[in-house]
Design a protein around this nucleic acid. Structure first.
Lengths: 139, 139
DNA sequence: TTTTTTATTTGTAATAATTCCAAATAAGAA
DNA sequence: TTCTTATTTGGAATTATTACAAATAAAAAA
């Protein structure tokens, strides 16, 4: 399975870059995020993870997710007071939160637009990252 | 004090529009947010509120803040896993979070730009609100 | 390959932010 | 002024997340 190997290589590279260790748990969590890109919470990831790895603890899920974020393989998304969601889509995009279904959608935006925002910052404001959250309804 | 009266009127109108009651506590919390626009957390608001209203409880602070948000007088801002911050600036703007100082800045953006984002949503995506969060450093 | 080192996992306890609840209070309508 | 009921209050409960210490397992060294 070519894509599995690609994932593995991506993960190995990113993790070793940070001087960390490659573990079955980290691989498992990464695959879960890539297999179903529905912006799950840590708890939802935990439930899925236990399917094929029943001994995995919730603490490990949090640890692994934090590692993936630190390695730049995954983004965190926060809507209101809800729990953190995780997104493995690394292309620049906004997040649309449907108030009816609760679902979260990735919305690709023009790169120019994102550059524009950066350009409109006052002098001395250095941008490291941006998150565009849109509340609304789909359908 | 003209501006105090303006505030009072704004608050009265917004609250009665929702069929809710005007209370000293709600007025107090609203004034606290308007007096120092530094995006305080509920707990910070609580500390300030107790200065001149020592019997006010934290639950009331949360209640009042929720009411102000429901009335459209105040916006909530969420950075990462931090606690909710409150912003009484109703003009469309982005929030810049300085990683060094922890401070939050309002950043005015071109209205065109915000319209552009709305225009780039796929068909069927209806936008009710948007939050642009920028992580970075100032100075 | 085996040993060694130490990062990671695991289960549980602790914490932080927020919400819930039921009794007391106080808007504002009658 | 009385009455109704929304709001406030204090504290308990909940939720999401983090902290901790012992057990495990990568991967470097022998």
């Amino acid at each position: 399975m070519i894509s599995r190997d690609n994932r593995k290589t991506r993960l190995r590279d990113a993790i070793s870059q940070k001087g960390m260790r490659y573990t079955r748990q980290r691989e498992h969590i990464f695959n879960i995020l890539l297999d179903k890109r529905d912006h799950p919470t840590a708890d939802e990831v935990f439930l899925r993870a236990r399917g094929s790895m029943p001994r995995m603890s919730l603490a490990t899920v949090y640890n692994c997710l934090d590692t993936l974020v630190a390695c730049g393989l995954v983004r965190q998304v926060h809507f209101e007071r809800e729990s953190t969601r995780y997104c493995p889509n690394l292309s620049e995009h906004a997040h649309f939160h449907c108030q009816k279904s609760g679902r979260v959608y990735d919305v690709e935006l023009d790169t120019d637009l994102l550059d524009d925002i950066q350009g409109q910052l006052p002098d001395g404001f250095q941008m490291d990252g941006m998150e565009i959250l849109i509340r609304g309804k789909v359908g």
